[in-house]
């Protein structure tokens, strides 16, 4: 058999310059009908990072200590989902606190009284996003919410938490508003995106239609921390003024390009961070 060349033949596509207009994986070229080795392995790397982000466990005590070191006081809690596999298989357990956490929040409120705003940070589906981005986002958020005429509870750091965990936490703290920052379901090109969900009068049983969402917080490709925090202040202020959150509040908020829930996601009833 004839010896093959040092580099096996692959066909490249003469429209690679169009990648300027989209981050879609176009003009990948081919080996026969198949992906060239490089494109294949780049995909595998992106998927590996997304999987690692989903399975990474947030060390809540360590993360709370990081926030405390920056002058942000914290409480730590855990959902009723004991580990990562349970969290993924049982969304219902990620939406309620375990007993010890519930008791801790009740005791805190007993001692300190109710506050207007409960601010929560949870791993959601990407602890990677929380570890790398949440401290800076929270600094902006606390700064913005501090400018409103309202009282703020200590930041609640929650392990194995989904969006609706903020309902129980907010209720136990007697808050008028719950805002939860959490890691969104990782996409192949975005393993570290944060979402923020705001709920007026939080209590278990609230639906996603009663919340407002700020999605894709992920500078520089996605939303900046400044814009996200500013938007949250606007929503929180309006929610307290009008006594509601959700669809009717969203209608009046200015649209931000690219953050509306895609139609196929919406009909499945799954919020990106949920």
């Amino acid at each position: 058999m004839k010896r093959v060349g040092r580099r096996a033949p692959t066909a490249s596509d003469p429209w690679a310059h169009l990648r300027e207009f989209t981050s879609a994986r176009i003009a990948l070229g081919r080996a026969g009908s198949s992906l060239p080795t490089r494109a294949l392995l780049e995909f595998q790397l992106a998927h590996a990072r997304a999987r690692d982000a989903v399975h990474r466990v947030l060390d809540v005590d360590d993360f709370a200590a990081r926030l405390a070191a920056e002058g942000l006081s914290c409480l730590t809690v855990h959902s009723a989902a004991a580990d990562r596999d349970t969290f993924i298989a049982r969304p219902d357990l990620g939406r309620v606190l375990d007993e010890a956490s519930a008791a801790r929040l009740d005791a805190w409120r007993e001692q300190n009284g109710a506050r207007d705003v409960a601010l929560i940070v949870a791993d959601g589906l990407s602890a990677t996003a929380v570890e790398s981005r949440a401290p800076e986002l929270l600094r902006h958020v606390v700064g913005q919410l501090g400018a409103l005429p309202c009282t703020l509870a200590p930041i609640v750091v929650a392990g194995q938490g989904r969006v609706a965990l903020s309902d129980e936490i907010g209720q136990r703290l007697g808050a008028r508003i719950a805002a939860i920052v959490l890691g969104e379901r990782p996409g192949l090109s975005s393993p570290d995106s944060l979402g923020i969900y705001l709920t007026y009068a939080p209590r278990p049983g609230r639906s996603n239609a009663e919340r407002n969402c700020i999605s894709n917080v992920r500078p520089p490709e996605g939303l900046s921390y400044e814009v996200a925090a500013h938007r949250l202040r606007h929503l929180a202020n309006e929610a307290m003024r009008r006594g509601l959150s959700g669809v009717s509040l969203k209608d009046e908020a200015p649209l931000l390009a690219g953050i509306d829930a895609p139609s196929r996601v919406a009909w499945r009833g799954d919020a990106p961070g949920d």
């Binding site: 989209t22 981050s23 879609a24 994986r25 176009i26 990948l28 992906l35 494109a39 995909f43 992106a46 998927h47 379901r185 990782p186 996409g187 192949l188 090109s189 975005s190 895609p262 196929r264 996601v265 990106p272």
Partner: peptide
Amino acid sequence: PGADDIMLSYQ
């Protein structure tokens, strides 16, 4: 394209 839907975030 490349099995990666950049809008719906699924493969």
